[in-house]
Design a protein around this nucleic acid. Structure first.
Length: 202
DNA sequence: TACCGG
DNA sequence: GCCGGT
């Protein structure tokens, strides 16, 4: 396999297990079976490596989102699946890693912010417009504003302030928020479709 | 692998 | 003293 790929693979695995700061460039080099010099031939510095690993993860999520959108013509199903995907992503990453990246690798974090803005918000606007046309969501809702509100709800789980609180259960909070958000935009048809689907899933 | 500097 | 970078 390509050296660059191996480095990214090992780095990603180590970073998500132990954090970005505790894993050294030397450890990564040793695990790949190369010298540090080879890493620095592929990556400018550690910051660059972290950014590239993060970029890979975001690209996977973006592909998943496109896949869900292509696969599902059910608007409600789509929103539920998106929420599921975000929860899975969150529970797969050590919260410490998220905090470290925000603090010590702001460039990588900026990428995530842009990803939120573009991919997630655009997807939400699309799905809400579709839901309007199909009569699941009320005609008068402002999809642009609500897409931002919903995006902020989804990404609130990434706020380091939340991790400090041991009482905080982001999975439960995400489920409650999604339910509340949907009931704010549903028509009666949408509400009934949602509840029959929920009953079907359980 | 040894080394410097933050 | 550790670790990124040379």
């Amino acid at each position: 396999m390509e050296t660059r790929k191996k480095i990214l693979e090992v780095a990603r695995d180590q970073f998500s297990r132990y954090g970005v700061r505790t894993v050294t460039m030397e450890e990564i080099a040793r695990m790949v079976g190369i010298s540090k010099k080879t890493i620095y031939q592929e990556f400018l510095d550690k910051k660059d490596l972290v950014t590239e690993v993060f970029k890979e993860i975001l690209e996977e999520d973006r592909k998943k989102m496109v896949h869900i959108l292509e696969q599902e013509d059910g608007v409600i199903d789509h929103l539920v699946k998106m929420s599921q995907m975000m929860r899975e992503r969150l529970s797969s990453i050590n919260p410490m890693v998220i905090m470290e990246i925000q603090k010590y690798f702001p460039e990588a974090w900026k990428m995530f912010e842009e990803f939120k803005q573009q991919a997630i918000k655009a997807d939400l606007i699309n799905v809400m417009e579709k839901g309007k046309r199909l009569g699941y969501f009320r005609e008068e809702i402002d999809t642009s504003i609500l897409a931002k509100v919903r995006m902020d709800q989804i990404t609130s789980a990434f706020d380091p302030a939340n991790f400090a609180n041991p009482e905080y259960n982001f999975v439960e909070e995400q489920l409650v928020l999604m339910d509340h958000f949907l009931h704010g935009i549903f028509t009666e048809k949408g509400r009934l479709a949602y509840h029959s689907q929920k009953a079907f899933q359980n």
